[in-house]
Structure formats: structure tokens, C-alpha cells
């Protein structure tokens, strides 16, 4: 039986780790390769580097981070942020990433998902989604880091990207993100009811029990968190040991 995964996410800007709170007020805090190694020691099942570099000059730096990490950390690596073309996919995979995550660009250009799945295989195509309650009982999808409401219904979007060949969904609830009140189980269950591909829960982790709750009460295959791990409030090991105690299959 497949183990449920715990995935620390490292937000990287200009080759350094940062953490955004509700996408605002970002501050710089350290060396991503060192963080990756530490998370690996703690038992992370996968690592996500999310590149928030804005400038064109800084863009190559994430590839150096991936290259260095891939020499020292032997679990799957996923890279997201600013991936816009098939060449970006190729460069990122060549640097040592196993998966590439696309978000806004998938909304701008759905062909990117289709082509990438065809050329590199669905297993490396992760679609990141920022979604939010629309106030009338549904959810809509946002782009550009949650700044632009695409007015696309979430259920329709996830069905489409699965059909196009996405291999996995990383679902970030903008309602839950930064609140530390737990993952958005309602939104996750909604998405899991629409697709068969694995769904990663993202946004809202604040306490140890949030992880066992989301993995027990939704169909999510994995849970992702950034700041909680980043500031050492919880270690990946603590989370996984707690999951094991709750009877959830994990790699420990």
C-alpha cells in the first residue's frame, strides 16, 4: 500500500529561502540546499522548491539550487514557479527535478500541460491550484499568486487538467492559507471526488493534528507545509510519527 506523503515546501527567491505569509510580506531566511538536507534527515518524502524570483536575471539560480540538492538528497524533488515553456520543463528536469509544477501558466496556456505530459510523462506534471470560496457555495480558481480570479469553477478545472494529462494536483486553499486553522478538508474532498490523480493538500497547517485529520478525513495523498517546518515549530519526523500513531501508512 502506498504511504501518505509529507512534503515540506521551500519558497526560494534569487536562490535563497523565503516564506510568504498570505503571499505578502516576504522575508529572506536562508540556504535552500541546507534546508533540503535537513528535511531529508527528518524523513521528508518529497521536497518542493517554489521559485518566486521575479527578475529574469535571477531565474537560473533555482536550477543551481536543484542541481546541488540532487547531489545530496535522494528523494523526489519538485520545482514550481515561473515554468512557462517546454524548454523550462526540460531545463528543470535536467537539473535533477523529478516533477515540475505549473500554476498560472497552465491557466494561460493549457497546451503546456498537454505537451509536457506527452513529452516527459504525466508523472512529472504537477498542476498547482490556488482556489477560494466564491461566496455562493462554490470555489473558483485564481492565478498570479492569488491575485487574479479566473472565474473558473474548481471542479471543472481539475477534471480538465486530469484529462489533459496532469499527473498530480497540489491544491492550495486561499481561504485556509496562512490561517493555521488546518487544511481545507471541504475543498479537498470536493476535488478528490472529481479526479483519480493524487491530490496534495496545501495551506492552513498549524498544528500536529491537522496532518492526521486531513489524511484521514479526505482523499489527499500527501500534505504540504512551508512555514511550520521552516521555522522549526514542527519537524517532519514529529508529524510522521504522529501519523503512524494514528494508524496512517507512512514511511518512517
Amino acid at each position: 500500500m502506498l504511504a501518505k506523503r509529507i512534503i515540506p515546501c521551500l519558497d526560494v527567491r534569487n536562490g535563497k529561502v523565503v516564506k510568504g505569509v498570505n503571499f505578502e510580506g516576504i522575508k529572506e531566511v536562508g540556504d535552500p540546499v541546507a534546508f533540503a538536507e535537513e528535511y531529508n534527515r527528518q524523513g521528508a518524502d518529497e521536497l518542493v522548491f517554489y521559485d518566486i524570483t521575479a527578475s529574469a536575471e535571477g531565474r537560473g539560480l533555482i536550477l543551481d539550487v536543484v542541481r546541488e540538492t540532487a547531489k545530496r538528497v535522494f528523494v523526489p524533488l519538485c520545482v514550481g514557479g515561473g515554468i512557462a515553456t517546454i524548454d523550462d520543463f526540460r531545463d528543470t528536469l535536467r537539473a535533477g527535478a523529478d516533477k515540475v509544477s505549473v500554476n498560472s501558466q497552465a491557466l494561460n496556456n493549457p497546451d503546456l500541460i498537454i505537451e509536457a505530459a506527452k513529452i516527459f510523462g504525466s508523472q512529472c506534471v504537477v498542476v498547482g491550484i490556488d482556489a477560494k470560496r466564491d461566496g455562493i457555495g462554490g470555489y473558483t480558481v485564481y492565478k498570479n499568486g492569488g491575485r487574479v480570479d479566473m472565474k473558473i469553477e474548481l471542479g471543472k478545472w481539475v477534471e480538465e487538467i486530469e484529462r489533459w494529462g496532469a499527473g498530480e494536483i497540489c491544491l492550495n486553499s486561499m481561504d485556509a492559507d496562512g490561517t493555521r486553522n488546518g487544511f481545507d478538508k471541504e475543498m479537498l474532498n470536493y476535488v478528490c471526488s472529481k479526479v483519480n490523480i493524487p491530490v496534495i493538500a496545501s495551506g492552513g497547517a498549524g498544528r500536529l493534528s491537522d496532518f492526521s485529520e486531513v489524511l484521514e478525513e479526505t482523499g489527499a495523498s500527501a500534505a504540504l507545509a512551508a512555514s511550520l517546518f521552516h521555522f522549526g515549530e514542527l519537524t517532519v519526523r514529529e508529524v510522521k510519527e504522529d501519523l503512524k500513531k494514528s494508524g496512517i501508512t507512512v514511511r518512517v
Binding site: M1, L2, A3, R5, D45, Q123, E168, S221, R251
Partner: peptide, 10 residues
């Protein structure tokens, strides 16, 4: 179960 099998198995 989904195909591909993707993830950690024992």
C-alpha cells in the same frame, strides 16, 4: 487504485 503507481511503497 490509480495507474501509474506513484509514490512510496514497502
Amino acid at each position: 487504485l490509480a495507474v501509474p503507481q506513484m509514490g512510496w511503497n514497502s
